[in-house]
């Protein structure tokens, strides 16, 4: 009789250790990336890493500004293309779609989330890059922010759609009924009551989507061109900046890590640390916003 309870208790503690492996993993990831990145951070300095505009490892120049600009711009591009589409999908699924249609759209969105990023990258290379090349602007190679943003927009769509739909579904039915009973159209009810009530959840969804976008690596390497330059418009039209090539923070790590040594390698790990911290901040702010909502 007693052994049963001893077994029960020890199993409890054993399982607790297992539950702690995830935090152990987080700790180890933080520790080892930081340990490898520390030499660069102390030798080059965090300030020069973050503000230096030249990245030339051969000459010991380690400025991340081109990559930061690349990541930021491609994320903005993806958000411009992807956010309206994703929220439209969420509204569609939560409020408008008849059952037969949501039975098509929902699995489609799920599958979009499951498609490997290398496949998106390949599709971007063989379909979107040639399309982007058709824009008649001197210096446009097709590889660049436009194609990369389009690919990324599709990749973040499932994240934003799923979380926004969830947020919209959390809006109490009473608000919907109250609004409709006042003689408003369904669309007015959606824009005036439902979306404002779900706002924080939708904002959190967008933030999480941005986090995903900043973390994406392989598809970006394949379509963005990877030139280490600060993207600039190709001609007088400022929008041509999106035809410029670029390199993302993640792509920079992946492209160079396998041959980098010494301080160069360390600088890449430092980039990883910066990315890790940034994405942790982004994700926890999104979680904080969502918790606020449920309170």
């Amino acid at each position: 009789m007693r052994t049963r309870f001893i077994v029960d208790k020890s199993v409890g503690y054993f399982l607790m250790l297992m539950a702690l492996t995830s935090i152990l993993a987080v700790f180890l990831i933080g520790f080892f990336t930081l340990r490898e990145g520390l030499p660069a951070i102390s030798e080059i300095g965090l300030g020069r890493l973050l503000t230096g505009s030249v990245w030339r490892p051969g000459l010991e120049e380690f400025g991340l500004v081109p990559m930061i600009a690349g990541s930021v711009l491609v994320t903005i591009g993806a958000a411009i293309l992807g956010v309206p589409l994703a929220i439209g999908c969420a509204v569609f699924l939560a409020e408008i779609a008849p059952r037969w249609m949501s039975n098509i759209v929902r699995p489609a969105v799920e599958l979009l989330a499951g498609i490997p990023s290398v496949v998106y990258g390949l599709f971007g290379m063989v379909v979107l890059v040639p399309l982007a090349r058709k824009v008649p602007v001197a210096g446009n190679s097709g590889f660049g922010l436009l194609a990369a943003s389009a690919v990324l927009a599709v990749m973040i769509l499932p994240t934003i759609t799923n979380i926004s739909e969830y947020a919209i579904r959390l809006v109490p039915r009473e608000y919907r009924e109250g609004s409709l009973a006042l003689g408003t159209t369904r669309w007015q009810t959606i824009t005036r009551v439902i979306l404002p009530s779900a706002r924080s959840g939708i904002v959190a969804a967008i933030i999480l989507g941005i986090g995903r976008a900043l973390g994406e690596t392989i598809a970006m390497i394949m379509v963005i061109g990877n030139s280490v330059i600060i993207p600039r418009p190709l001609n007088a039209n400022p929008l041509t900046i999106f035809l410029s090539q670029a390199r993302t923070l993640t792509g920079n790590i992946a492209v160079e890590i396998n041959y980098a040594t010494g301080i160069h390698e360390s600088a890449l790990f430092a980039t990883g640390v910066i990315l890790f911290v940034l994405i942790m901040l982004i994700n926890s702010s999104a979680r904080a916003i969502m918790r606020e909502r449920t309170r």
Binding site: E174, Y175, E177, G178, S179, A181, L182, V193, P196, S197
Partner: peptide, 11 residues
């Protein structure tokens, strides 16, 4: 118009 069982002012 309609007034519901549970007061449902909008947020």
């Amino acid at each position: 118009g309609m007034v519901f069982q549970k007061p449902n002012p909008f947020p």
